[in-house]
């Protein structure tokens, strides 16, 4: 930016770069931003450190690094809690999450295609209703849903958690995929139609391959939200052998002894690892998904 008199290029965000103070600005900026990042990530760092601390250090010790690092917490965490091993909780969580992903992706893309590309009776009414359900609080359907699943004998199984996803009840993802489809050029459909393709073939051969990015976003967010979900799992699962990881973690709170703190944090770390891996692998996808659709994340 030595030629300040010339009109600055379009990308320049600060309109008046002052030559002398300007050189230090990036440094100051990096220091400030890094400080905020560290403050923000402190609880996560604290958690990871605590999982390696012996019982007497876990809560009260101020030092981040454990004085006497130990792996005992992890041994205990893998043994599980309430007589059920960690692997059982992990398996249950994975089953629910993967089932939900499959359900959401399949059912939402089908509904989205109809809304985005097909003409049908009561389309406006149904679309308005679908958008309205995005803002609907879950609690208003919770109790009757519970009664339905109870009468079908499905309470304390994974069905109440997975089945609704196969019925496109998470309208948010329907909307996300609709928005993505609206961005695809209609000429593609037209060309296919002229070639004699019906709506079903257009869906499978043209639309479906092109909306893959939206489906990946749907899959990632469904996985993470289901993985973190606590409320519906708390309501529907009642025996420890059916518990998912969040419910298992919750069992630790009831334990009054301080010795349970270490294993609790070790299991917390283990619970967060899949999200961390997703984050590292797909961070661009995630951030892009949020910024283009306003996902709550």
């Amino acid at each position: 930016m030595s030629t300040a008199t010339v009109t600055p290029p379009k990308q320049a965000a600060t309109p008046t770069p002052k030559a002398r103070t300007g050189r230090w600005r990036p440094v100051v900026w990096h220091v400030i931003v890094t400080a905020i990042v560290l403050l923000l990530l402190y609880p996560i760092i604290w958690l990871v450190a605590a999982s390696f601390k012996p019982a007497d250090e876990v809560v009260t010790s101020l030092s981040i690094l454990p004085n006497n690092p130990t792996l005992e917490n992890y041994t205990a965490a893998f043994d599980g809690i309430a007589g059920v091993s960690f692997w059982s909780y992990l398996g249950n969580s994975l089953f629910v999450a993967i089932g939900s992903v499959a359900g959401n992706v399949v059912s939402c893309v089908l509904a989205a295609y109809a809304f985005a590309r097909l003409r049908f009776r009561m389309r406006g009414l149904m679309f308005a209703f679908m958008i309205g359900t995005i803002m609907l609080p879950y609690h208003v359907v919770l109790i009757p849903q519970y009664i339905i699943f109870q009468q079908m004998g499905m309470v304390d199984s994974f069905w109440p958690l997975i089945l609704p996803k196969f019925l496109a009840t998470e309208a948010f993802f329907v909307f996300l995929i609709i928005q993505f489809m609206r961005g695809l050029p209609r000429e593609l459909d037209e060309a296919a139609r002229i070639d004699g393709c019906g709506p079903i073939r257009i869906f499978f051969h043209i639309i479906l391959p092109l909306v893959r990015p939206a489906l990946i976003t749907t899959a990632i967010f469904t996985f993470i939200w289901t993985w973190n979900d606590f409320f519906s799992q708390l309501i529907y699962l009642s025996t420890p052998s059916n518990y998912t990881l969040p419910l298992a973690l919750r069992l630790f709170i009831d334990q009054t002894s301080v010795s349970a703190y270490g294993p609790m944090f070790a299991m917390s770390v283990l619970t967060l690892i899949p999200i961390g891996l997703f984050f590292l692998a797909f961070q661009r996808f995630l951030v892009q998904g949020v910024s283009t659709t306003g996902l709550k994340g």
């Binding site: 990530l41 809560v59 973190n228 606590f230 770390v269 619970t271 999200i275 949020v290």
Partner: peptide, 24 residues
């Protein structure tokens, strides 16, 4: 930085992080 700031939004809804808050 943008990704680092975003990370808590993915983790914050979990029981694990709520437990950390409880302890902190």
């Amino acid at each position: 930085y943008r990704s680092a700031f975003y990370a808590p939004s993915l983790l914050g809804a979990s029981v694990a992080i709520a437990l950390v808050w409880r302890a902190l």
